[in-house]
Design a protein around this nucleic acid. Structure first.
Length: 847
RNA sequence: GCCGGAGUGGCGAAAUUGGUAUACGCACCAGACUCAAAAUCUGGCGAGGUCAAACUCAUGUCGGUUCGAGUCCGACCUCCGGCACCA
């Protein structure tokens, strides 16, 4: 140990030692309890940003803590290395995506190592390597076997200028993000994964994680799946044997239906309008609606628009005839693409009815007290005529035939049963979630393992021919599917009949890669299966997952889906892959010239380079600051002066160790019954044990910021402890050793390099990992010897008394009333009562 | 519009079951060291009030429950985030 703190030197020294001793490699077959600590794997863009640094600092703190607590910790990392940016680099700069990606990985791996994150590098994986994506393809084939992977025509965002498919994000506002051309909807054959098959489980199993995942994530997942209970009802068509099926969550309002509204794309339209004079008009209208929907940005809600088809439908409950309208607000993708319009009790239907002057009939009344209900009865007729807006609450049915007088909640159940009994409907559950489109007309992804044979049709690639390896390169023009232009890839012999065949040229969505990667970490080099189920069972489910909440739906729902599928394959035995989830807050920085704090980004110019931070302050200080500055789930505002504070703290602690290390390392001072502890030494030991208890407790809730504060408090107490290292008596030396060693061990999760250095200089030459254990708090030592009890008068703090912890209530009361200050205040007043909270406070109530 | 979450010093933030509000840090101020500055160390630091104290007021606003409310209840305001024609 040097006298002065040189972070660069210390950090390099320990990174090298960790590396040489393979200090963080996790081993199977370990009798200790396991802990799987996982951070979301990064996309190798080339550079770590502060969000990554925060993510890994949080994870590493937990991994260190668990390791020091005696757990067998798995803490791996890898690369989500397929995706668009590599292909963009190829298009723009002509570089090979593979080379670009590998270079970026190499650089970012170096950055992670300079941060000193305790990863098990022997388990590193990367999605773009054939030994990994082979298993993406394997899973795809398993799904295909079970009918969970299928192909269908589906509208995609299509840029006509570039001849390529765009994601929703790339086509927001109906404009291509690259060339600015107007985006079209095109029907293309695409591969889908049947996530809808698992919709119910994705909602129901939320109860398994509801206390350990953030509520905001679960909420978004519930919304995403969009489970909705209601009923299907069939409306007959007059003068036809056809019928229109609608979905409704409010069957209780069916007597108020004034029309059926159907989507412009509804398949019945073509049939029913055969020979109708309106046919052309309706078709023109449908076209217009489609065009407007495509042009509209996702947020906007255009005005209601519709057209009467002249068709009449029959309300199966009332027998009433209602017109069938085509309406622009009815979505073909949801429910049945048709709905019953009940303007009195639905805002959208109300708006629609207003526009076209359709009748509004009220069939639900507010449940109210009897008198009010009489008053309402008198006014009912008027209300029906001139409602200002829809009444969308549950209530009591009126004007509803035999159902009048029933409560909505009751009627909804009974009417659905009634419909089922009479064969014109049934209770139903619908979901908003759609099947997961995984086809990408791109190069840099896992090829879909499918072959199209002129004779045999669609043929899955046999398992023993996996992986379908990406060709080394392709023409990157930015238009069309690059793989389609690589003839040696495309043209092959059919695996079934050996005849002429072509490969599928779509690659898979990169979310496929990240849906199961953390299972691969358990058994990363397995060449025969994605992972050995027995080995995975040793580590999974993940005990703690940490990442940004930007993945609240996509990744985190796909991985839940994938896990359930793997469970059905018999690969895992649980429903949920992640026990606890933490969504960390963003790292923001001031945007130059403004008062805005925004997420760091290149385009805003407010980014901070982790390497510069490490060079200027050291990784230990940077990590300490990040974890101290805000609770992990809060936004973190980047302040350089805050890092300087962290450096100061580390340097002071380091200097303290330097002052004491000769004495502590050379003497084997321990205490026995004869050791005398001065009051100051006892106070220091008390603080030490209180701090251990607090920090251990805070770790369970990942309150890392208050842990750092507690470490600082302990250090401050230690600084105020007045003892000379050369001459201090045994009791003092022991108290200092206990405080200092506890401080160093508990600092390790935050600033591991300097903690190792200090630990070594305190006489533990074998290093932290092998010799240190998390300190234990002794409750007896942590207990206060004397309490300072506040005394209130009428709830206002007025004085204090000192008392022993075992003081009785009566003694406390007496002490309070004898206190000089309290006596002077209560003099001349009647003491109504005295509240004594044992060990906490006294409150004297006077009149 | 709907649904979540949050409002505490100049700033980031603390505060077991309701029990001493503002821990810890940053910034700032003063002092020591220095020819000087930086660094470092020591002290101060919610607002008003006072030589100092006493005291008064303060956790978004208004009300309530309680001996006692940042914490519980009701109404409202503001900010942030998500969803958005989902029948």
């Amino acid at each position: 140990m040097d006298e002065k703190y040189f972070p660069e030197k210390i950090e390099q020294k320990w990174q090298q030692r960790w590396n040489e001793s393979r200090a963080f490699e996790a081993k199977s077959d370990d009798p200790r309890p396991k802990f799987y600590c996982l951070e979301m794997l990064p996309y190798p863009s080339g550079f770590l940003h502060m969000g990554h640094v925060r993510n890994y600092s949080i994870g590493d703190a937990l991994a260190w803590y668990k390791r020091l607590q005696g757990f067998n910790v798995l803490h791996p990392i890898g690369w989500d290395s397929f995706g668009q940016p590599a292909e963009q680099a190829a298009i723009k700069r002509g570089v090979n995506p593979r080379d670009w990606t590998e270079e970026n990985i190499a650089h970012m791996r170096g950055q992670m190592q300079r941060l000193g994150i305790s990863y098990d590098w022997s388990r590193e994986i990367a999605a773009h390597r054939p030994e990994y994506y082979k298993w993406d393809q394997w899973f795809f084939l398993k799904m295909h076997e079970r009918g969970l992977a299928y192909k269908k025509k589906s509208p995609v965002n299509w840029c006509p200028k570039e001849g390529t498919v765009l994601s929703n994000e790339q086509s927001s506002g109906g404009i291509c993000w690259r060339c600015g051309a107007a985006v079209e909807k095109r029907d293309l054959e695409q591969w889908f994964l049947r996530i809808t098959e698992y919709a119910e489980q994705l909602v129901a199993d939320i109860k398994q994680i509801e206390n350990t995942w953030p509520e905001k994530v679960l909420k978004r997942q519930r919304d995403w799946v969009g489970r909705s209970e209601g009923a299907y009802v069939d409306f007959g068509i007059k003068d036809s044997d056809q019928k229109v099926r609608v979905f409704t969550t409010r069957i209780d309002t069916i007597y108020g239906a004034n029309a059926i509204a159907i989507s412009a794309e509804h398949p019945l339209l073509a049939d029913l309008l055969q020979g109708s004079s309106l046919k052309n008009d309706i078709e023109a209208f449908a076209k217009k609606v489609k065009a407007e929907a495509a042009a509209r940005s996702r947020e906007e809600e255009g005005p209601k628009d519709g057209m009467n088809t002249g068709i009449l439908a029959i309300n199966p409950f009332s027998g009433e005839l209602v017109p069938v309208w085509v309406a622009n607000y009815v979505l073909m993708e949801y429910g049945t693409g048709a709905l019953m319009s009940v303007p009195a009790h639905d805002d959208r239907d109300f708006e629609f009815a207003q526009k076209y002057s359709l009748p509004v009939r009220r069939v639900i009344e507010r449940v109210s007290h009897e008198q009010e209900s009489i008053a309402h009865d008198e006014a009912r007729e008027d209300q029906s005529l001139a409602m200002p807006h829809a009444f969308t609450e549950y209530g009591i049915l009126v004007n509803s035939g035999d159902w009048s007088g029933k409560l909505s909640t009751v009627a909804m159940k009974e009417m659905a049963s009634y419909a089922a009994e009479h064969g014109f409907g049934e209770a139903a559950v619908t979901y908003r979630i759609r099947d997961w489109g995984v086809s990408r007309q791109r190069f840099w992804g896992a090829p879909v393992p499918i072959v199209y044979c002129e004779e045999c049709g669609t043929v899955p690639v046999p398992y023993d021919q996996l992986p379908v390896v990406l060709p080394p390169s392709a023409e990157f023009t930015g238009t069309g599917a690059p793989l389609a232009g690589v003839s040696e890839f495309v043209n092959i012999n059919c695996p079934k009949c050996n005849g002429r065949a072509k490969r599928e040229t779509d690659t898979m969505d990169t979310f496929v890669d990240s849906s199961w990667y953390f299972f691969r970490y358990c058994d990363p080099r397995n060449a025969t299966v994605p992972f050995d189920p027995a080995i995975a069972a040793e580590w999974t489910p993940v005990d703690q997952y940490i990442g940004g909440d930007s993945h609240a739906v996509m990744h985190l729902i796909y991985t839940r889906f994938w896990t359930k599928f793997m469970r059905d394959l018999g690969l895992v035995s649980f429903d949920e892959p992640v026990k606890r989830l933490l969504t960390q807050g963003m790292v923001t920085n001031r945007v130059e010239g403004t008062d805005d704090w925004k997420a760091m980004s290149k385009s805003l110019g407010n980014g901070v380079d982790p390497d510069e931070m490490i060079a200027a302050f050291g990784a230990d200080a940077a990590r300490l600051f990040i974890l101290f500055a805000a609770p992990v789930e809060n936004e973190l505002r980047w302040l350089e002066s805050g890092i300087e504070g962290a450096v100061r703290f580390i340097r002071r602690a380091y200097t303290m160790v330097w002052r004491w290390h000769d004495r502590l390392a050379s003497s084997d001072v321990d205490h026995d019954a004869s050791t005398e502890f001065s009051p100051a030494a006892r106070a220091l030991r008390r603080k030490t044990h209180q701090t251990i208890a607090k920090i251990t407790n805070d770790f369970e809730g990942l309150h890392l910021n208050t842990i750092v504060a507690a470490l600082m408090e302990l250090f401050n107490e230690l600084s105020n402890f007045d003892a000379n290292p050369a001459t201090a008596p045994a009791g003092d030396v022991f108290a200092v050793r206990e405080a200092l060693e506890s401080l160093v061990i508990m600092l390790a999760p935050f600033s591991p390099h300097v903690a190792e250095e200090m630990w070594e200089s305190l006489g533990h030459s074998r290093g932290l990992l092998n010799s240190a254990r998390w300190p234990q708090s002794d409750a007896d030592l942590a207990r206060r010897e004397e309490l300072e009890i506040p005394i209130q008068v009428n709830g206002k703090l007025r004085s204090h008394v000192f008392a022993l912890p075992e003081v009785s209530e009566d003694e406390l009361r007496a002490a309070a009333l004898e206190d000089e200050k309290i006596r002077s205040i209560i003099e001349g007043h009647e003491v109504v009562k005295v509240i004594v909270v044992p060990r906490r406070l006294v409150n004297v109530v006077i009149k």
